[in-house]
C-alpha cells in the first residue's frame, strides 16, 4: 500500500519552497524596518540640530530668540532630577526586592505585592503625573519643586528597579548563602556581605536603565506643572526647575521654523546623555557581572 503519493509531493514541492523563500524575505524586510526608522530619525535630528549645537547652547538659558536659546537650565535641571530620583528609587526598590526575594513568605500578601508591581509597571506615565500633582504638589505642598517632580518620577521607575534587583538577587547561587550560614553568619549579615556584593552589578545596570527612563520621560512632569521656560538654576530641592524633555517639548510646539532646529539640538543633548548612561550600564554589565 502506498501511503504517500510521491508525484503529488513532488508537484507541490517547488511552490512550498518558493513560499518559504518569499516569506523569509518579507520577515527580513520587516526586521530591517526598525533599522531604517532609527537611521532616518537619527539622521534627521543630527542634520537639523548640529548647527545649533555650540558652546553658547550650553551656556545660555531659554530665550524667545532661537539663535540665543540655550539648554543650560534644562540640562542642570535633569541632573537635579537624577539626584533626587536615584537614591529614593534605589533605596525603595532594593528594599522591596530584598524583602520579596529573601524574607517574604509564600502567602497572599506576597503574591498581592507581586501582582501590584507588575500592574504598576503598566500604568501610563501620565497617571503618575496626576498622582504627583495631587499628593506631592497639592497635599504635601511641595509645589512645582525638584522634590515633587523627583518623588513622582521615583514612583514611576520603582517597578523597573524592583524587577531588575529581584532578578539580580535571584541569580546569586544558593551555595554562596549556604556557605555564609555555615560560617555562622546571620541572615542579614549574609544578605549585606554576600548576596548584595554579588548582585550589585545587575542591580546597578537595571537602576541606570531605569534612571535613563526617568530622564527621558515628559508626560508626568507636564501634569505636575514643571515650567517650560525658566531663566535660573535651582538652588535646592525646593526650588522649581525644568528638564531636557520639557524644554524640547516647548521648542517643538513653537510655530517658528527655527525653533524646530533648536529642538533638534536639544534632542541631540538628551540622546547623548542617554547614550552616556546606557554605556555605563553596559560597561558595568560586561565588566563586573559574574556568571555562576
Amino acid at each position: 500500500m502506498k501511503l504517500i503519493d510521491k508525484t503529488i509531493v513532488a508537484k507541490k514541492m517547488p511552490i512550498r519552497l518558493v513560499r518559504n523563500t518569499i516569506l523569509k524575505g518579507l520577515f527580513f524586510l520587516a526586521t530591517t524596518f526598525g533599522l531604517l526608522v532609527l537611521g532616518i530619525l537619527l539622521y534627521r535630528i543630527f542634520a537639523q540640530g548640529i548647527g545649533y549645537l555650540d558652546w553658547d547652547f550650553f551656556q545660555n538659558f531659554a530665550s524667545r530668540r532661537p539663535e540665543e536659546a540655550g539648554i543650560k537650565a534644562a540640562l542642570i535641571g535633569s541632573i537635579w532630577l537624577m539626584i533626587v530620583v536615584a537614591p529614593v528609587a534605589l533605596l525603595l526598590g532594593l528594599g522591596t526586592a530584598i524583602y520579596l526575594e529573601e524574607y517574604a513568605k509564600k502567602n497572599w500578601f506576597t503574591s498581592f505585592i507581586k501582582l501590584n508591581i507588575s500592574n504598576l509597571a503598566g500604568v501610563p506615565s501620565i497617571i503618575f503625573g496626576l498622582l504627583g500633582l495631587t499628593i506631592f504638589v497639592r497635599a504635601l505642598a511641595l509645589d512645582r519643586s525638584v522634590l515633587a517632580a523627583g518623588l513622582t518620577m521615583s514612583l514611576l521607575v520603582l517597578p523597573v528597579i524592583i524587577v531588575a534587583a529581584q532578578e539580580a538577587i535571584r541569580s546569586v547561587p544558593r551555595e554562596l548563602r549556604e556557605a555564609s550560614y555555615g560560617m555562622g553568619a546571620t541572615k542579614w549579615q549574609t544578605i549585606v556581605r554576600v548576596v548584595l556584593p554579588a548582585a550589585i552589578p545587575g542591580i546597578l545596570t537595571g537602576s541606570i536603565l531605569a534612571l535613563s527612563r526617568a530622564v527621558g520621560e515628559t508626560a508626568p512632569l507636564v501634569v505636575v506643572g514643571i515650567p517650560m521656560f525658566i531663566a535660573f538654576l535651582p538652588k535646592n530641592v525646593f526650588d522649581t526647575f525644568t528638564v531636557l524633555p520639557m524644554q524640547i517639548y516647548n521648542w517643538t510646539s513653537r510655530p517658528q521654523e527655527e525653533f524646530q532646529s533648536v529642538a533638534a539640538a536639544g534632542i541631540l543633548v538628551l540622546l547623548f546623555l542617554l547614550i552616556f548612561m546606557n554605556s555605563i550600564a553596559v560597561f558595568i554589565r560586561n565588566k563586573f557581572q559574574k556568571r555562576y
Binding site: V37, S212, T218, Y249, L270
Partner: peptide, 17 residues
C-alpha cells in the same frame, strides 16, 4: 535602542518628518 528613545523625540519625529 528604538524602545529606549524618549517619546518626546518620537513626537518631534512625527511632527517634523
Amino acid at each position: 535602542i528604538l524602545a529606549g528613545v524618549p517619546t518626546i523625540v518620537y513626537g518631534f519625529f512625527a511632527l517634523t518628518f
